[in-house]
Nucleic acid binder design. Structure first.
Lengths: 193, 193
DNA sequence: GCAAAAGTGTTCTCTCTACACCCATGT
DNA sequence: ACATGGGTGTAGAGAGAACACTTTTGC
């Protein structure tokens, strides 16, 4: 039987508290794999995606049969800051919850995101510069589907010693501006939630 | 390029506090995959491994190039009770730490084991009947490479409401016999550590 | 001055840790 | 009786949850 191996690259970012995924021609980024899987990915990223410091992580392999072919889809992901993505003509970002793909793929993505986003190193990639606490709190509440108390949320991050306060505030359209913070340089990775 | 896809099946058990892995002809169990990966596994288990209720979980996919062939190795695992393995002539168990395989494979196995063994449902599969607390404490200390206080270890499991005490004791060669427990029927899965 | 959103501190509860002595068995 | 390993309880520290009022901004 003919065998086709694809690498599927899921690049996630967060816009306005909602997880988005990068598409190419309105489809998942799929690369036919005819070499070692890491080599193929590295080459593709260099030639096609203008994103700095991308570090793909493999998270699942699906198989399907189609027209007497065996198709192996190896899923990879990374999470990056919105500004580090240069949107070429054929690239677009879509809210993950609005993406029309097989539920088993989507569920695996969400499961993986939930594991990744609680890590210090991941959240620093997502917010490499300044951010406000309400901003990342909203993101967590959306992705993890939980509610947090504002004060306890803040205390948690401060006690973990992972953020430092900047002398700046955000400009909100409504209400009091939020203080801006940045993540400290990571010494060891910590689980935030 | 020619592509070969293999499923590699890692079946773990614990003997005397140490993790062991099932080998076939002293090698990892490898199946050439020419159909949907779950279908292949199901068929192989039925025909070759006389183990009840095996429920394989995929955990990683490696690739390698060999003689101008692309080899895709998809790794699966399950954890079972020692007594549920019927050792046919070509099957054997070896202590995981003494297995001579590529370090990246071994590290992935250990990482996966550490995630699995803290779950209620997994540990119940390993100890479906009676067990003593010192027995599983030793296993945890070995796999997680940590030490636990005897009293706190016991209190933790009791407070989690996952074990019940039997009116029996173990027969140790040294020292006082340990009380025997069994896991309660699982309602929801809990993380033990 | 009103609505909207953000900042802050305290108390209470619960969990985790550390720790010492006694008990049941085999030899 | 002694060596070995298992069982038990308590006190103190630390983490997490609940909670209300004040502050800053835009309109």
């Amino acid at each position: 039987m003919e065998i086709v191996v694809n690498n599927i690259i899921n690049i996630f970012t967060v816009i306005d508290g909602k997880v988005h995924i990068l598409l190419k021609n309105n489809k998942l980024i799929k690369i036919e794999c005819n070499d070692d899987i890491e080599t193929i990915n590295k080459k593709y990223i260099e030639e096609n995606l203008d994103i700095e410091n991308l570090s793909l992580k493999q998270f699942y392999t699906f198989s399907e049969k189609q027209d007497n072919k065996l198709i192996i889809n190896i899923l990879f992901m990374d999470i990056v800051n919105y500004n580090s993505i240069k949107l070429a003509d054929d690239l677009s970002l879509i809210e993950l919850s609005k993406l029309d793909i097989d539920k088993k793929y989507l569920d695996k993505c969400l499961e993986t995101l939930r594991k990744e986003l609680v890590l210090n190193s991941t959240i620093k990639k997502l917010y490499p510069d300044e951010f406000s606490l309400p901003e990342i709190q909203k993101m967590y509440e959306d992705v993890l589907d939980k509610k947090y108390d504002r004060r306890n949320f803040r205390k948690r991050l401060i006690k973990l010693d992972v953020i430092e306060c900047l002398e700046k505030v955000s400009s909100n359209k409504n209400g009091r501006p939020a203080k801006l913070y940045k993540f400290k340089d990571i010494v060891e990775d910590k689980c935030l939630f």
